[in-house]
């Protein structure tokens, strides 16, 4: 790891100031992606601004079906939250599939969203549930937030403070994890709410998380796994890497969507 200057912020204002004053500063929360990236020198910020001790970024509140999760909330805290489990168990299930128990004790939802790894789990849930990402400056709907591989709508001096969504009537998530990294080789989050069906795919898209029109169309007619039999998901905008070809991932999208629907239907 290259040299770095560490700063611990006590408040959001202090974090913004530290970030502004830094030459090439980066925000760190759990650091479960950033620290490994710095160790391999894929990332080499001049300064780290630690958000982990900012109380206002932590915590979960559930009011009716509206869920608000502070950006600094860990995956373990989301996975084990009884209030979310009652109205949106799919999100707890998703959080519990990230990394491993030790990573989940450190990694945070805000960090995952800000990083927007194309194989991360949370982006699929946020997009499928039309979540709103709250920052120090504004509110951004998920559709506008994820803009590409590791790219988001966040400005340089913008910090995610929380995410907010209304728990849909039905939701399910299934992923095919890479056996080594546990990142999604393909993960699908499906939602049915009123007449609307949404299906967001992570780990497969050439340009990060996206909604599958084919899956949504089939499930809108019949929200059952059988409705996905024989549907054709095009492979042309999907990722090919050492783990799987685009065609294989196209197959995984259908398979994972089926499993997600089974979960959503309980």
């Amino acid at each position: 790891m290259y040299e770095v200057n560490y700063h611990r912020a006590g408040s959001l204002e202090e974090a913004l100031k530290l970030l502004k004053d830094a030459d090439d500063g980066k925000l760190i929360s759990g650091g479960q992606t950033l620290i490994p990236a710095m160790k391999t020198r894929l990332a080499a910020p001049s300064d780290l601004v630690d958000l982990r001790h900012i109380a206002e970024l932590r915590g979960i509140s559930v009011s009716g079906r509206t869920v608000t999760i502070g950006a600094g909330t860990t995956h373990a805290e989301v996975a084990s939250n009884a209030d979310i489990e009652k109205i949106c168990p799919a999100l707890c299930h998703l959080a519990n599939l990230i990394g491993d128990p030790h990573v989940r004790h450190m990694g945070t939802i805000g960090g995952s969203l800000a990083n927007n790894d194309p194989a991360a789990d949370y982006p699929a849930a946020m997009l499928a549930m039309s979540a709103t990402i709250l920052t120090n400056a504004r509110e951004i709907v998920a559709e506008d937030f994820f803009t590409g591989l590791f790219e988001t709508a966040l400005e340089e001096d913008e910090i995610i403070t929380a995410v907010r969504f209304d728990a849909p009537a039905k939701a399910g998530y299934a992923k095919f994890p890479n056996p080594a990294s546990r990142y999604a080789m393909t993960g699908v989050f499906v939602v049915q709410d009123g007449g609307a069906v949404r299906a967001a795919v992570t780990g497969a898209g050439d340009d990060g998380v996206f909604r599958s029109a084919e899956v949504e169309e089939a499930l809108a007619k019949d929200f059952s796994p059988a409705a996905l039999d024989g549907i054709n998901v095009p492979a042309d905008a999907l990722m090919t890497d050492i783990h799987a070809s685009a065609a294989y991932r196209a197959g995984l999208i259908v398979a994972m969507a089926k499993r997600a629907v089974v979960m959503a239907n309980g």
Binding site: Y6, G31, Q32, I35, P36, L48, P101, H102, V103, H105, M106
Partner: peptide, 8 residues
């Protein structure tokens, strides 16, 4: 529990 090689 945390992984001490991934924390400064």
């Amino acid at each position: 529990s945390v992984k001490s090689c991934s924390i400064l």
